[in-house]
Design a protein around this nucleic acid. Sequence first.
DNA 1: GAGTGGTCTAGACCACCCC
DNA 2: GGGTGGTCTAGACCACTCT
Lengths: 244, 244
Amino acid sequence: MSEPLPTPSFRPLYEQIRILITQSLVAGEWKPGEAIPSEMELAARYRVSQGTVRKAIDALASEHILVRRQGKGTFVASHSEPSYQYRFLRVMPDGGEKLHPHNILLELRRGKAPAEIARALALKPGAPVHVIRRVLEFRERPLILDEIMLATARFPNLTVARLEEYKGSMYSFYEAVYGLRMIRAEERIRAVAATEEVAGHLRVAAGTPLLCVDRIAFTYGDMPVEWRRGLCLTDGFSYVNELA
Amino acid sequence: MSEPLPTPSFRPLYEQIRILITQSLVAGEWKPGEAIPSEMELAARYRVSQGTVRKAIDALASEHILVRRQGKGTFVASHSEPSYQYRFLRVMPDGGEKLHPHNILLELRRGKAPAEIARALALKPGAPVHVIRRVLEFRERPLILDEIMLATARFPNLTVARLEEYKGSMYSFYEAVYGLRMIRAEERIRAVAATEEVAGHLRVAAGTPLLCVDRIAFTYGDMPVEWRRGLCLTDGFSYVNELA
DNA sequence: GAGTGGTCTAGACCACCCC
DNA sequence: GGGTGGTCTAGACCACTCT
C-alpha cells in the first residue's frame, strides 16, 4: 500500500506559537517598549502549557525581537531604547568607548531604484525611492558618509523637517514614525578609495582607503526595507565583529 | 541578626553542568568529532534530571562547541568537519559560492611578540612567537595575505614540513596536531592601502585599497591563542556579516 | 526495535521587582 | 505579598537513525 501521506513537514507547537506571537507584533497588538502578556496568560490564550510559550518566547528573545526582564515581564524590543539605539552600528573607536555619533543630513531627494538595489529591496527596477545622504560625526570629526534608499511606498510624507526633527537613530525613526521595526541586517564590506566628492565630505585626501559597507535591513518575515551604503573612515576607528 | 550570608551569586544548576562538561572537553575526555554520552547517561552521572543536562547542552550547542544530531547523539564540534572547515572565514565571492581557498605558505620564522600583540595573546612583551606568513588563493588568484602569530610555548615543534603536510584550515591543524580547539574570535576591520611589498604578493598595484582584518582567536575559557592580520582584496569579494 | 535527541505537559519552588 | 520570569523535576510521547 502507498503511505497515507509523506507528512509534509513537522511543525512543533512552540514554533506555531512563535508565529502567532509574531503576527500579533506585526499587527501592532503590542507596541515597541510595551510588555506583552505574561507567560501564563499567553499559555491560557493559546491553550498550551507555560513551557511551550516559554520556548516560543525564548526563540524571539534570542533574535532580539522580545526582551525578557525577570520580575517585570517580557517586552517588545525597541530601537528607541538607549541600549538598542545603535544596535547595528559596528564601527567603534579603537579606544573601546561606545560610539554615539552626531547626524548631519546632507540631502533628501526622490530617485529611482537602480536594478541592483531594487532587487535587494524586492521592488521593481526603477521603483521610486527616497534617497537620503548624511554624514555621521564623532567628536566634531566626520566619520561616515551614508547613502540610504527607502521605497517611497513604505515611507509616505518623508520630509527633511520630519527627519531633522527626529533625534536618535534611523531605525528608531522608522519605528516611531512608520511603525517599521528592523529585526536584522546583512552587510557586505569592501575596501575602496575615496573619490574627490566623498573625500570632501569626510575631510580627507582623495584616494584615502575607506570601508564601503553595504547593508540591507529587514523587518518581520525577512522583508527588506532599507538599503544603505556607508563609506567609513578607519583611522582611530574600526569595524568590530565577533565570530562565534 | 545579620544575614547568614549574602548569597555571593546565584548559579543555576545547568550552568554548573555546562562547566563540568566544558572541563571534560578541555581534559580531552571526548575528542573532536566524537559523540559525548547520551543525555540520560549524563543526567545519571551528574545526578540531575535530563532536562537540566539538556539545558546545559543547549547552551554549548548554541556556541557551536557541541553539535546535536537527532537520533544519533551529541558530538564534539570539530574544525575538521567539512561544514566547519572555514567557519571563521567571512570573505565570500560576490557570486555567493562558498570560498575554499588554496593555501600558499610564504614563511615560518621565530620572532618576538610586539607589545600590542603580546597583550592580545596574554603573553609577556617580547615573548617568543612563531610568525607565519601565507597567501590564500582563490581560482589561481591571490586574495588574502595573512600574518599569524602563535606563542611558541603552545606550539612546540612547529615546522614548515608539518604545516605544509597538513591539508585543511589552520584551525583544524591546531586541533588535530595540538589539541587546541578554537571556539570564537574577535575581529577589527580597517581599510588600508597596499604597500609595495603587499601589492607584490597580491599582484595588484601599490596603493590598492585593502581590508585589514585583525583577529584574535580564543579557546575554552576565553584564552587567546592566535593573533592574525589578514590583508584582503575586495574586487569580486566582500566581507559578509549578519547583524542580529 | 532499541536508542538518541526533540517536544510537551504539569507542578513545585526560586529570584527578582514593585507596591 | 503578589506578580513576573527562571529553574528544576518527572514522565509521556514523537521524530529520527541505525541495525
